[in-house]
Amino acid sequence: MNEEILHPVMNMKWRYFKQRLFFGAVRLSAFVITFALLGILAYILANGFRAITWEFLTQPPTDSMTKGGIMPAIVGTLYLTVGAILVAMPLGVVSAIFLTEYAKQGALIRIIRIGVNCLAGVPSVVFGLFGLGFFVVFLKFGSSILAGALTLGILILPTIIGAAEEAIKAVPQTFREASLALGVSKWNTIFRIVLPSALPGILTGAILGVGRAAGETAPIMFTAAAFFTAVLPKSIFDEVMALPYHIYVLATAGTHIEETRPLQYGTVLVLIALVLGIDLIAIIMRSTLRRNKRW
């Protein structure tokens, strides 16, 4: 035995007590977060499901929006979201290809990365101001689907870039080397080998972007959203109703806030189902993707 023994086991109890305390706090935090999500969902579901009828989903609002359905808002949100993804998807994928395949180091890349990170951090209401100043006023698009979709597209661009980058990085280097070693050009290697392998991952990212775009309110308040339209939009220069804005309007403006509560809950439920449904698809897609990875 060594003469001096450093470790009296006396304080082991205290050390394990601290550990139990900490683990307790950690588990509690996980529980609180879970409870918050489930609590909100359960409450909305419990109050909203009664409002959901076929008419609610397929009819426009009537009686100064105190009755009727939310069909124009659903359609409007669909238009805006599809428009946003059409803007962000090509831009995002091309940016991601550049960032991962063409230039990995250097000042330019550094600047682009900082730019993307900062763009991701711009508050949504500032996107709204930008959309108003640039698309609506300067480019004279007016408050329209076009202006709203462009604004939302820029908003989700960083999300798409991030997801596409990750998907492209996950393609094994050996795939590229095999193709390049056969004398295939870099561009063709990217287009025929890298992108097809990364496609599921890119799509997952795109779906998450769709979910984000569908739920945003502030960016479309000044660029696309109408308080009320009886008819559906005929061109991309028309204003539209949108689900998130409709919720805001019903819940805060007007003289019938209490009366229209059921409509509000119903609209919230539809929006949540839409957004979280989309997210859930992406999450499930991603986890099956990981499990069935062929390489």
Binding site: L37, S124, T217, I247, L271, I272, L276, I278, D279
Partner: peptide
């Protein structure tokens, strides 16, 4: 999913 909850909700 919590991150996906729209802020208006």
């Amino acid at each position: 999913l919590l991150a996906g909850l729209p802020s208006v909700v």
